[in-house]
Amino acid sequence: MTTKIIARKNLENISAYVAGKPIEEVQRELGLERIIKLASNENPYGYSPLAKEAMLSEMEQTHFYPEGMAPALAAKLAEKLQVEKDHIIIGNGSDEIIRLLTKSYIEPNDEVIMPDVTFPRYETNTLIEGGTPVLVPLIDGIHDLQSMYNAITEKTKMIVICNPNNPTGTIVEKAKLTDFINKVPKHILLIMDEAYYEYVNDNEYLETIPFLNTNSNLVILRTFSKIYGLASLRIGYGIMHPSIIEELVKVKDAFNTNRLAQAAALASLDDDAFVDYCATENEKCRKYIENELTKMELEFYPSHANFLMIKLNQHGKEIFEGLLKQGIIIRSGHLLGYDQTIRVSIGSQPENEEFIKALQKLIG
């Protein structure tokens, strides 16, 4: 007989993160050879050839531990972003930095204000540390900044804004966000998650890095997983005041990012042409899907990222399962907080065309 060992009480109401179904899993389950995965906002164009060359070269050093703070990558990012090197911390994906922030700053009963619905790891990491998530509903898929500001109490330790927001893809109006950043009390950490930053092409999008000079509580998160196509290598970064980084380093794993990831990310920063190509193709393909959805009289949130959240007249799980049988993996909205929706990542044009045909077949 096995005796169950009781885990931390904070974990009682926390569920494991449900990622988009892997291609290999669907192939095993359905016996299909060809699968189109449009579920995890990955880059359909792969990654920079420069990154491949760098990884092949770095493999010769695999038997040595990597540098714990990835100084070469931090220095190159600092130069590219025109910030000081000590304002950069490299993470095992930007989601690790979210975890480091809650681990460093959140104590039991501290409150963290965040939109509802958004990337679920903000809430999960808050709960793990015994904090209280304060969920503020979106308005038409967009952050309600006024209500988020009104939610501030003496217990508020952190506020999180995802811009563009996942899963809706929407952005926050520039003037409203500027005002919000400037009026949030400086003793409250303000986290700006900009994982999809490179995809945005809109004058209403706010460049937040200049605010670091006057807002020492501001933390900006970005990643190499999306437009740079290095999702499996798990590497992202945060831009923030050095005093915050000093605290994060105390709880960071000694070697949190591996040699290949550091080398690939470093080389990727030299390939602006690849990034520009991916952004251009993404916008073109997103508009194609939007036009087809409009013809089908389906509504969707105005996305500025590499995915679309589509509104349906039925449960998203039904469409998810129907598409899966046709070898197309998307995300059902019931896993993301919106039952009658699906979220589809923007693929290559042939993939997008197959998705539209399959969707038309399902909804008639």
Rank of each mutant, 00 (worst) to 15 (best):
N10R: 00
N306R: 12
R34Q: 12
S348Q: 00
R8V: 05
I159G: 03
E354M: 07
E353S: 12
L101D: 04
E283Q: 14
E299V: 03
I171S: 04
M69N: 04
P44W: 09
M55C: 03
L218T: 03
K157E: 02
I328W: 00
I159P: 01
Y288I: 08
A16C: 09
R286F: 09
K186E: 10
S104Q: 12
Y237C: 06
M192I: 07
L189I: 13
V160W: 06
C285V: 13
V18S: 07
N92Q: 12
E123P: 06
L233E: 09
P66R: 11
L56P: 06
I128L: 05
N41T: 12
K80W: 06
M192Y: 04
R222K: 15
T132Y: 08
Y288N: 07
E60Y: 10
Q262T: 11
Q340M: 15
Q314Y: 08
N13V: 01
K317E: 15
P108G: 03
T280D: 11
L233M: 15
L362C: 01
I23Q: 15
S94E: 12
P49I: 06
L101R: 13
S40D: 14
D272H: 08
Q349F: 14
M114F: 01
E354S: 10
N203Y: 02
L81H: 08
Y45N: 00
G169K: 04
E84D: 15
S48I: 07
T280P: 00
E198S: 11
I139Q: 15
M309F: 04
I14F: 05
D272G: 01
G131C: 09
E290I: 01
V249R: 01
P120L: 14
E283I: 14
G229H: 05
G316P: 06
I128F: 02
E318V: 14
L38M: 12
I35H: 07
D110I: 00
M55G: 02
R99W: 00
P350W: 14
I245F: 03
D116C: 11
